[in-house]
Structures are given as C-alpha cells and as structure tokens.
Amino acid sequence: MLIWIYQHYHEKVLLQDIVHAGQLIRSECCRYYKDILKKSLLHYVNEYRIQQSLILLQETDLNLLEIAYPVGFNSTSSFISVFKRIKNTTPLAYRN
C-alpha cells in the first residue's frame, strides 16, 4: 500500500484505491495506518506530499502553484494550509 502511495501521491488519492492495492477491506486498511504508522491515511499521504514539496522548494525556483499541483494538492491555499500545519511554517518561509 505504501508503494502505491509513493507511485500515485501526485494524483487524487482515494481510500478505495489504496484498499484495492493492499487487498484489504476498508476497516483493516484504516486500522493498519493507525496502528502501524500512528496516523490516519490522509495525514500520511499529506505528509508524504509535503516531503516531496520540500525537494522542489529547496532545489528549484518554481512558484507555489507550480509546486502544489505536481505533489498532489488541488490548490495553493490547501498546499499552504497543510504545509503550515505539518511544518509549522509557510512554504516560502521554509524556502528562505
């Protein structure tokens, strides 16, 4: 399931797709993430997306819009909001 997330994080990630990839039922999939990774599925996916955005923030001059979409966010405002919640700073402050 993690490999599927790593390969598809930039797309719209649906629980049913991850469940199918792991060949589990929905409740087992959610419990797996909570028990093993100590976080919800959505939180894990968002953390991974933010991790990927860090590379782009450090190694490119792309603007936030050019970073948000390729890492799986559907708007810059949601990207900034999630980034701030996870990293306790804004993407631009992190870049600087």
Rank of each mutant, 00 (worst) to 15 (best):
M1V: 13
L2Q: 12
L2W: 08
I3K: 14
I3R: 13
W4D: 08
I5V: 12
I5W: 01
Y6F: 12
Q7H: 07
H8D: 10
H8N: 15
H8Q: 13
E11T: 03
E11Y: 04
K12C: 04
K12W: 07
V13W: 04
L15N: 08
Q16G: 01
D17P: 00
D17G: 06
I18G: 03
V19L: 04
G22K: 11
L24Y: 05
I25M: 12
I25P: 15
I25L: 14
R26Y: 09
S27R: 10
E28W: 09
C29A: 15
C29L: 13
C30L: 15
R31D: 14
R31T: 14
Y33H: 13
Y33R: 10
Y33M: 15
I36V: 14
I36F: 08
K38F: 06
L41F: 14
L41I: 15
L42V: 14
H43Y: 13
H43S: 12
V45F: 00
V45M: 06
N46G: 00
E47V: 02
E47D: 07
Y48T: 00
Y48C: 02
Y48H: 08
R49Q: 10
R49K: 15
I50L: 04
I50M: 04
Q52D: 01
Q52T: 03
L54I: 06
L54W: 00
Q58F: 05
Q58E: 15
D61K: 10
N63I: 05
L64D: 08
L64Q: 14
L65Q: 12
L65H: 12
L65A: 11
E66H: 11
I67Q: 00
P70G: 04
G72I: 05
G72F: 02
G72K: 04
N74T: 11
N74S: 11
S75F: 13
T76D: 08
T76L: 04
T76G: 05
S77P: 02
S77F: 09
S77Q: 10
S78M: 14
F79H: 06
F79Y: 14
F79I: 05
I80F: 09
V82A: 01
F83D: 01
F83M: 02
K84N: 12
R85A: 08
K87S: 01
K87V: 02
K87Q: 08
T89Q: 05
T90I: 07
L92R: 07
Y94A: 03
R95Y: 00
N96K: 13
N96Q: 10
